[in-house]
Design a protein around this nucleic acid. Structure first.
Lengths: 250, 250
DNA sequence: TCATTTTTGATCAATAATAAGCAATGTTTG
DNA sequence: CAAACATTGCTTATTATTGATCAAAAATGA
């Protein structure tokens, strides 16, 4: 196995798990511990990771700073989000021109994306950064950055979206409700979501079960306008309005 | 088989697989390993790939360990950059509408910015993130993200810039030269720089002393179009062409 | 604290990969 | 057309990488 391959695999593992052990890597890659240690030493020298006794830990930098903020928000139902993200990511293939909405639900998709030739558009700074780090082609929507979420919103973002036509789009939401449809608290964000959503041939909303039967101030789409990807459907009736994928089912 | 043909096939393979072995290429292209090695050596010299023991790895992309360019570059003259950045940041006040070009020189400004009411526009993802974290109002230019530098470049970025008129703009450069003026290696980046620069009432170029008397492929401005902020002016004559601030002076 | 266990880095032999030299073949140029 | 030049593949001496071994260092826990 080429050294670069090993480096990549080590870093990828580290990116997902934040720490790795020498033993674990040695077994996972079928490589002697000596070599793993040498690799870790090299990567440490290149500041790609921090070597610690027994293994290595992911390094700080802008990346982890971003992650701290995100971690706070995304710690609600992380396993749910990962499962939902995995399913959502599996829908993307190399021919797609994909919109990914800012947010932690959609962010959970990224690690699972397996379509190196797809092109991505997003209004999420963190999402854009992660996609780029994965080696994918990424276009960021221009406009003012909303502090807490690092999402690009506002009139410029909306204008910037108008030229695009996405084959698939993935969205987060704060509430799903029979009457209100999909909704979020921030009018600016809602507008951007709507503008992007109507430009998608297929739109998917990623939502953990806590989002159902919740209404927030501004609607950005009706239920029929997007399919829902969730882990487990706890309430009845939604499946009459739109297609729902339950990850836990079956 | 023509060498250019082989180069193309090798690079294509690399683009898809991120790493290739000499053996694999030799078999796939029906070419001796010697020739493959020679090809890899050439392509490595042209920075099209990174030669490693046993094969080659793609530059940039996911977990490539080849992006030392940026890491190394930002570590070059960090004190110089900080001093220059400090001086540059002191020029910004609350009334300003500021453009900050992507790059490590300009990134060094951010920590010193003392104008909470100024509004910032940038094409640098990392710069945007840092500015937001400082609590400032930030607008990101939309467009495709260039992997290694995380800068937004391309036609969309240029279009996105056209509506703005900045009171001040801060730029990085790869070379400063009497004839070539300010220049950088990447044509796309140069275009974006130029488009932004001509929209600034006052434009400043941040440059450590190593940048002087250096010419790189694409010019984005003449010396007279921007003031230079540097730590110590080692060459004479430049002060006739434009205003120069020397941080170390006095 | 000290003894036990785990991890580490250095060393080494085996293996794999490389660069350099060289002859044969193919390609330009006058 | 022939001479000069470049490219290719083969051989070989040199070099780099690997995994195993083991003493030293670090972590663990009583």
């Amino acid at each position: 196995m080429l050294s670069a391959e090993r480096y990549a695999k080590i870093l990828q593992r580290l990116d997902e798990k934040k720490t790795v052990t020498v033993t674990e890597l040695s077994q996972a890659l079928n490589i002697s511990e000596s070599t793993i240690r040498r690799d870790l030493t090299s990567l440490d020298k290149e500041k790609k990771l921090k070597k610690i006794h027994g293994g290595a830990s992911a390094i700080g930098g802008a990346y982890s700073v971003v992650d701290d903020e995100v971690t706070l928000r995304s710690n609600r139902f992380p396993e749910e989000k990962a499962k939902i993200g995995h399913r959502a990511a599996s829908l993307i293939d190399n021919q797609d021109f994909v919109y990914i909405d800012a947010g932690t639900s959609t962010e959970a998709m990224i690690q699972f994306i397996q379509a190196p030739r797809a092109v991505f558009v997003t209004n999420g700074m963190d999402i854009a950064t992660k996609l780029v780090r994965k080696g994918l082609r990424v276009i960021i929507i221009g406009g003012e950055i909303k502090p807490v979420t690092n999402a690009v919103v506002g009139i410029e973002a909306i204008n910037g979206l108008q030229k695009y036509h996405f084959s698939k789009g993935f969205f987060g939401t704060n509430g799903i409700d029979y009457q209100a449809g999909f909704s979020t608290p921030d009018p600016n964000e809602a507008q951007v979501k709507r503008e992007a959503l109507i430009r998608c041939q297929k739109a998917f909303v990623l939502a953990d079960p806590s989002k159902f039967n919740v209404m927030t101030p501004v609607s950005f789409a009706q239920l029929s306008e997007a399919q829902i990807i969730t882990s487990k459907l706890l309430f009845e009736g939604y499946e009459k309005e739109t297609k729902i994928m339950e990850v836990d089912k079956k």
